[in-house]
Computed example of a mutant assay.
Amino acid sequence: MPQIRQRPQYPGLKHDQIHEGSKCGATCSKFYAQRDYCVWCTHSICYGFHCIPIGEGRNDVFSAIITRWPEAPKRIIYDFACALGPYCMTREPVFFANTQFAIDDFHASGHTKCAPAAFLKTYAQVDPRLARINTSAAECGNGGISRIRKSVSYMTQARAIMFTRVFISIWNRTIIRKRRNIK
């Protein structure tokens, strides 16, 4: 997705854009590691990617959404949504006013100190339609990305980006063709 705006600066927030280390949030016990950050829809289509040399944090996701989406998504299902929601709402409350942040089912078990309001399963108890959402789409997609991780690690940055972009384009086209044949 093309960049449509610059990431705003928030001088009133003391730690804005500071790398957050390897922990999800102040009260969350979940840890994360370095990896590629890909934005996946629930149909396993990749909207874009970003290579992160150190563990991803809230700023990576926030920056991708605020700089590339004309409107905030209705729902963000993410393994660190417990910290991402407050992070986004602190910075852009109007932009994210109608966005629901929820932890996907795959990662929920690792969030032992997070409130039930952080889990998609909790929302699905009230709205059963949410239970039909493929919350593992990102994990399936990241499994596909893992096929090229070793090859990319030996490439220059420019080649790695080009190779990843071609891989994701082929991945998306394959998923779209499969979905069209199903219907």
Results as ranks from 00 to 15, higher is better:
165 R>G: 13
46 C>H: 01
67 T>Y: 02
169 S>M: 08
169 S>K: 09
40 W>D: 00
141 G>I: 03
5 R>D: 02
51 C>L: 10
12 G>K: 04
162 M>N: 11
4 I>C: 02
130 L>H: 09
57 G>R: 01
7 R>L: 02
180 R>A: 12
102 A>E: 02
144 G>T: 08
148 I>P: 01
157 Q>M: 15
157 Q>E: 15
13 L>T: 07
141 G>H: 08
118 A>W: 00
109 S>P: 02
180 R>E: 09
86 P>N: 09
148 I>K: 06
33 A>G: 09
79 D>H: 02
30 K>T: 08
4 I>M: 02
106 F>S: 13
83 A>T: 01
168 I>W: 00
14 K>N: 05
172 N>S: 15
31 F>Q: 15
73 P>T: 03
169 S>N: 13
80 F>K: 04
70 P>Q: 03
32 Y>G: 07
71 E>R: 09
63 S>W: 00
150 K>W: 13
34 Q>I: 02
179 R>N: 09
149 R>C: 10
69 W>V: 01
65 I>P: 04
3 Q>K: 12
158 A>G: 11
104 D>P: 05
38 C>G: 02
7 R>C: 08
5 R>S: 05
120 L>S: 03
44 S>R: 12
165 R>I: 01
46 C>A: 13
130 L>A: 06
160 A>G: 14
22 S>N: 14
43 H>K: 13
95 F>M: 07
120 L>P: 00
22 S>T: 12
164 T>N: 06
179 R>K: 14
141 G>Q: 06
35 R>T: 11
142 N>L: 06
115 A>Y: 10
111 H>A: 01
64 A>Y: 10
2 P>L: 12
41 C>D: 14
124 A>N: 09
84 L>Q: 01
45 I>T: 03
125 Q>F: 08
10 Y>L: 15
56 E>C: 10
114 C>S: 03
171 W>P: 00
109 S>E: 13
36 D>H: 13
136 S>Y: 04
107 H>P: 02
130 L>E: 10
111 H>F: 00
44 S>L: 03
85 G>T: 03
76 I>L: 13
112 T>H: 06
100 Q>H: 07
15 H>M: 10
175 I>L: 05
166 V>K: 06
93 P>N: 09
93 P>H: 08
92 E>N: 12
150 K>E: 13
72 A>Q: 04
49 F>I: 05
65 I>T: 11
94 V>N: 07
93 P>M: 09
87 Y>R: 04
125 Q>H: 07
7 R>I: 03
16 D>L: 14
85 G>C: 04
128 P>M: 04
164 T>K: 02
